[in-house]
Design a protein around this nucleic acid. Structure first.
Length: 632
RNA sequence: GCUGACGUAGCUCAGUUGGCAGAGCAGCGGUUUCGUAAACCGCAGGUCGUCGGUUCGAGUCCGACCGUCAGCUCCA
């Protein structure tokens, strides 16, 4: 057989015999875990039959990482089957940071069982079992998994489209339904650890059986596993629940689960943040209002919340009347808009509100400041004419950019379209979606479409900010609403005297201010920039001989609106400096006898350390100007 | 809400086969008056999450509830 095929391997053209495995090509890098053949990710052991382009993937590529972790999930499943033959396999995907496998077991696992599973996994790695791809006809696949008594796998096969290629991967006595690709053998998984177990419903539905989900992570090199755990520790040190307590910002009590108690410092921080938003919005033509927090149920029925959001509402039953605490401000703002005749001259009408909102969240979902039951948003509803949507959306996108830039955060945009559980008629939805999409395209922002994830009343844009540890958080949300104006029969008179229906843009930029503060705590690791820090300056007299001078320094700081404290404790300087560093106060002003005599303050920066003495009234001006909010 | 784990002083944690509830830090008092990340001595601080059960005796064993944590689900 002299027939040869031409391959373009990593850009280099070569001729090979058909059927060769990518793994056996001369150019295969030592660290390859999978490869791409004409763009399709495949096993290193998949025979190459036709001419094409071959590119290799290593663990450093996201797709390569996925292959590695997916094979790790199979390894986990095989180990569990060895230990518990009655285990039934669900699904086991790769995650960004590792993998999991959902497995049905007669008895739920405990964390202490993980060690013996890890041991069984290590044995399978030592056996270095070849991982082999098998393609099956539908009937063969059904027969195979029926014989192996894997009901969940059978369910998956039955749901596969007619035309689907059904494949399975075999390693030793273990075989799993899987599209792959996988590593060539189990011996490649040099370094892994199981991290935790939890319950998870089959296919994510509460009515389905509860599976045991086992999480783990894996790497080609032990050092990488070590680094992974170090990163986890770093994230743990920044946890806002821990820092919130340590920095005396916020706490929770059993008596009010899901409702934060803001301590003086936390409340200060909160007010600076809210003030920043308030000033910015005022400059941008928003008008702040304050509306009730309890409404009769009729309002919620009219707004659609009763049908679509009731499970998330706190409801009060008084005097045979149902009342609901507001989870959102929109219906109140609609009442205000509709309370008088409006003309095109009033539009866009931008109503902002920072009032308390409450949402009933199931107990298991509460999570520090990230998921609470009582919170506030930097919320606004923009009542606009249809022709104003584009221009107004553009202004909102600009505002979002200003806010996130102020905190040095990058962000992604997600465009979510019509969900199954939608209100109103299809044509209005289509109009709203195309309107939003064209604004997005003109803005030049990069965005991703998330079909079916919109609110029940309209399509939306979600903004995911990226924090200092590269984690993504959903904060801003901008929702176009063609439905609520109909429910509330809102109207305005246009230039020609015709009555027209306004459109509502719901928008929040920080989203929940509580949650945003939690994100900021983690983003800054509690070391807030000067303009945000609840205590901006700590004055540290070296001995109590400088009590009077320290008080004078603080007096001057107060006069210029700087937030400060004096550490008059009976301690040595080193102790007070340490205390201020641990409290993450950005600026320390050490005042000793020398400073008092010379009219100076000895400045210490939280980040840089000792900056030496500075002439006092001059330095105050410098401090004040560097404490300005980054408004532009 | 569901699965699993956890709940001891303000914080971090120890507490043996069921037998007198402990430490460090923080706090308070005193001594020291000190120049850039922890001076010294002393004092005080707990209904061991709550309620019930087993036991001569429960922080420890059992049950229910509450809360927290890791997830599921949901979402700002």
């Amino acid at each position: 057989m002299s027939q040869r095929i031409a391959l373009t391997v990593q850009g280099a053209v070569m001729e090979v015999s058909p059927g060769i495995r990518p793994y056996d090509l001369e150019l295969t890098p030592a660290h390859a875990v999978a490869c791409k053949v004409d763009g399709e990710v495949v096993d290193l052991t998949r025979p190459l039959e036709r001419a094409g382009a071959v590119d290799f993937l290593t663990f450093d590529d996201d797709e390569g990482k996925r292959v590695f972790r997916h094979s790790s999930a199979h390894l986990l499943a095989q180990a569990v089957k060895r230990l518990w033959p009655q285990a039934r396999l669900g699904t086991g995907p790769a995650l960004a940071e590792g993998f999991y496998y959902d497995i049905w077991l007669p008895e739920p696992l405990q964390e202490s069982d993980l060690e013996q599973i890890e041991r069984a996994m290590a044995e399978i790695v030592a056996e270095d079992l070849v991982i082999e791809r098998v393609e099956l006809e539908r009937e063969q696949a059904l027969a195979l998994f029926a014989e192996r008594d894997e009901p969940f796998k059978l369910e998956i096969i039955r749901r596969l489209p007619e035309a689907a290629v059904i494949s399975a991967y075999r390693q030793g006595d273990f075989i799993d339904l899987c599209t792959g690709p996988h590593l060539p053998s189990t011996g490649w998984i040099k370094s892994f650890r199981l991290t935790n177990v939890s319950g998870a419903y089959w296919r994510g539905e509460e009515t389905n059986p509860m599976m045991t989900r086992i999480y783990g992570t894996s790497f080609p090199e032990p050092a990488q596993l070590q680094q992974f755990f170090e990163r986890q520790e770093a994230a743990k040190r920044r946890d806002h629940r821990k820092l919130g307590r340590e920095l005396d910002l916020v706490s929770f009590f059993d008596d009010a689960p899901g409702f934060p108690f803001w301590h003086p410092k936390g409340q200060q921080l909160y007010r600076v943040l809210e003030g920043f938003s308030r000033d910015l919005q005022q400059q941008n033509g928003y008008q702040e209002v304050s509306t009730p927090w309890i409404y009769r149920v009729g309002l919620w029925q009219r707004s659609g919340h009763w049908d679509h959001y009731r499970d998330n509402m706190f409801v009060i039953d008084r005097d045979d009347q149902l009342m609901g605490l507001k989870p959102m401000n929109c219906p109140g703002h609609c009442l205000l808009f509709g309370a008088k005749t409006r003309s095109y001259r009033d539009l866009p009408l931008r109503l902002a509100e920072y009032s308390p909102l409450s949402r009933y969240e199931r107990s298991g979902t509460l999570h520090g400041l990230f998921r609470v039951r009582g919170f506030h948003q930097d919320d606004a509803h923009l009542f606009v004419g249809e022709e104003q949507i584009g221009a107004e959306m553009k202004r909102v996108l600009e505002l979002v950019d200003i806010v996130y830039r102020a905190f040095g955060m990058r962000y992604d945009v997600v465009f979510s379209t019509r969900p199954e559980d939608f209100l109103g008629d299809l044509s209005l939805w289509q109009q709203a979606e195309s309107e939003l999409e064209s604004v997005l395209q003109r803005s030049g922002l990069k965005y991703r479409v998330n079909p079916g994830d919109g609110a029940f009343y309209g399509p939306k844009l979600d903004f995911h900010v990226i924090d200092a540890l590269d984690r993504r958080w959903q904060c801003a949300t901008v929702q176009l609403d063609f439905q609520l104006p109909v429910q509330f029969d809102l109207s305005y008179t246009d230039q020609e005297g015709k009555v027209r229906r306004p459109v509502i843009i719901h928008r929040a930029i920080m989203g929940s201010i509580e949650r945003f503060l939690g994100i900021l705590i983690e983003h800054y690791a509690g070391a807030f920039p000067l303009w945000l820090a609840p205590e901006q300056v700590r004055v540290i007299p070296i001995t109590d001989g400088q009590a009077g001078y320290a008080a004078a320094v603080q007096g001057a700081l107060r006069e210029r609106g700087m937030r400060s404290a004096i550490d008059a404790s009976n301690q040595k300087l080193g102790y007070k400096v340490r205390a201020a560093q641990l409290a993450k106060v950005p600026v320390m002003l050490v005042v000793g006898a020398r400073d008092e005599a010379q009219g100076t303050v000895s400045v210490r920066s939280r980040e840089v350390g000792d900056l030496g003495p500075r002439a006092w009234p001059d330095y105050l001006q410098e401090l004040v100007s560097s404490a300005q909010a980054p408004l532009t």
